[in-house]
């Protein structure tokens, strides 16, 4: 398995180069100019030109790109155009918050989604099954920002249990995590139910019951573990989407994560911030996919990674 992991890690290099090139080109092709944004609506062309020169934006595109790439190799993410701060620390700080939020959202989605899905499958066509699946449908369809505002309104203002956003501690992140995780939860619940329904009709489940094992053991050890393979794919993908989907949630709950950094960066055409953050998110996305692939081998020993 180790050579497999190594090879996958080496694959990261072309992916990274591709991501830097794409993000660089996309940003440069978008009309608009960081100097114009920074200088403000009242600025005259002299000021705009001076700012362009100061940040090297007057250089030809290939020069700008290789300059950026060269600094990147040295571990220098550049300086933000709008604040002059080093992008590295800014990005790490935001990334940690977003990872915390996404992980919390994913854990919530997993625990609640798998339990609901499994119970719904075991009690197929029951009242619990139909209502939980209906709610799952709502959960998948509800826009993040709206759910977030509703949660804040009820659980922060009407019943002041949680803070109305603004924090990065675990307690403040509960409402954002619920908001963020609901969509994934709904999907995981439906996937678990479908996957479980297939598994519990298999012969080996009947055999397990016939051997006298108790229903919880059969469901958890035999049925759920086998049902997990398709679910783990969804989980891996969902984590990536949670990272990206945290934009709306972060804005609504004033959580200083990657989403806010990216939105501010894009609006200000702050190239160094956007490029580096996109690169990091892409790397995490690839790593999560790798972990997902490795987890297949755990859930199904028949799968050998080569």
């Amino acid at each position: 398995m180790l050579p497999y992991i190594l090879r996958r890690l080496i694959h990261l290099i072309p992916v990274m180069i591709g991501v830097t090139l794409c993000s660089f080109l996309l940003l440069k092709l978008a009309p608009g100019d960081p100097a114009e944004v920074l200088a403000g609506i009242e600025a005259n062309p002299e000021v705009i030109e001076a700012i362009r020169r100061k940040h090297g934006l007057d250089q030809p595109l290939p020069v700008q790109y290789f300059y950026y790439l060269g600094n990147l190799m040295l571990g220098d993410f550049g300086k933000s155009i709008s604040t002059g701060l080093d992008v590295g620390p800014m990005m790490w700080r935001a990334l940690i918050v977003t990872l915390k939020l996404s992980a919390l959202g994913l854990v919530l989605a997993l625990v609640v989604g798998i339990v609901i899905g499994a119970v719904a499958a075991v009690r197929q066509n029951s009242f619990f099954d139909s209502t939980s699946m209906l709610f799952a449908l709502f959960g998948a369809a509800m826009p993040n920002f709206w759910l977030g505002l509703l949660l804040m309104w009820t659980l922060s203002v009407t019943f002041p249990i949680f803070p109305a956003g603004g924090g990065t501690d675990l307690y403040s992140l509960i409402l954002p995590a619920i908001t963020l995780g609901t969509g994934a939860m709904a999907l995981i619940a439906r996937m678990t139910r479908a996957s479980m329904l297939e598994v519990i009709r298999q012969d080996y489940i009947r055999t397990a019951y016939a051997n006298g094992l108790s229903p919880p053991i059969v469901i958890i050890r035999h049925a759920l573990k086998n049902a997990m393979i398709p679910i783990s794919t969804v989980i891996g993908l969902q984590f990536g989407y949670l990272l990206g989907g945290s934009v709306a949630t972060e804005i609504v709950f004033a959580v200083p994560g990657v989403g806010q950094l990216l939105v501010d960066g894009i609006l200000a055409r702050d190239y160094p911030v956007v490029q580096s953050t996109m690169l990091m998110v892409a790397i995490i996305f690839v790593l999560v996919n790798l972990i997902t692939d490795i987890s297949y081998a755990y859930f199904d020993p028949r799968i050998r990674l080569k």
Binding site: F145, L149, M152, W153, S156, V157, P160, P163, A164, G165, G166, I251, V252, F253, A254, P256, Q260
Partner: peptide, 18 residues
């Protein structure tokens, strides 16, 4: 001073006493 970008959140935080 606290950065709060979303207008609905500003209102809710005001109501919540934050």
């Amino acid at each position: 001073q606290k950065p709060v970008r979303e207008v609905g959140t500003r209102l809710l935080q005001l109501e919540a006493g934050q």
